[in-house]
Write a protein that binds this DNA or RNA. Structure first.
Length: 211
DNA sequence: CCAGTGATTCTCT
DNA sequence: GAGAATCACTGGC
């Protein structure tokens, strides 16, 4: 099996992990792509599900790093997060968008559209496209059906055939930070959304940026 | 712009 | 325990 990311990658400050995940590859049951958009939810962050302490719903967030935290919202959508920081700390990175590289046909079937930017661009779309649901809450990301590959060794299965051709993807993502999406109250100036500015697969375009 | 949809959590009895 | 408010979204007007 290919070397994927392990617990030590996730047992770090959640902002660092959210940034470093951009350009990595996330696969679920052999379907997925390159991570182009994430959001960090930190300890002490009023927008985080963990802000008011551990509950049955958010328990996985407080568990060991490197596990999948899946939650159900708005009566119809699932969203997937990767748990970060030490065991006992409530922190996670929301996966907001992938650039599809593997299994686009299966994604299209589940999503009901073949438009590439409608497959994985958005946290609930991503879960629907990859078939992620409540039953996957708490799974470790280094065991099947999940694979998270580091940025350098981008997915070998994505480009069958000649490796001599020039890769269509840029080698390094151009990472830009923005405010997070969908915060009902103000977000206190946090810029905890991380995107690859060169990607055409973001859930929404770039607005404010900079540091 | 706004409605759908239902689990979860908060705020009282 | 019951009732209400909220919700890290999406698709269709």
């Amino acid at each position: 099996m290919t070397d994927g990311l392990s617990a030590t990658f996730f047992e770090r400050p959640v902002l660092d992990v959210a940034r470093d995940l951009i350009g990595c590859t996330f696969l679920f049951d052999g379907v997925g792509g390159r991570i182009v958009e994430t959001e960090a939810y930190a300890p002490g962050d009023p927008a985080s599900h963990g802000y008011r302490g551990q509950t049955a719903r958010n328990a996985v967030m407080f568990g060991p790093p490197g596990h999948l935290y899946v939650y159900f919202t708005y009566g119809m959508h699932f969203c997937a997060n990767l748990v970060c920081e030490a065991n006992g700390v409530g922190a996670a990175v929301l996966l907001r968008a992938l650039e599809p590289t593997v299994g686009a046909e299966r994604m299209a079937a589940r999503r009901g559209t073949a438009a590439p930017r409608q497959l994985c661009s958005g946290p609930a779309r991503l879960c629907q496209a990859l078939g992620i649901g409540r039953e996957h809450n708490g799974l470790p990301v280094w065991e099947p059906p999940i694979t998270v590959l580091p940025r350098e060794g981008s997915d070998p299965a994505a480009t069958p055939g000649d490796a001599a051709e020039l890769p269509p993807m840029p080698p390094e993502p151009q990472i830009v930070t923005t405010a997070r999406i969908g915060m009902s109250a103000g977000d206190d100036g946090r810029r905890w959304r991380f995107v690859d500015a060169q990607s055409a697969f973001l859930s929404r375009g770039l607005r404010d940026n900079g540091v």
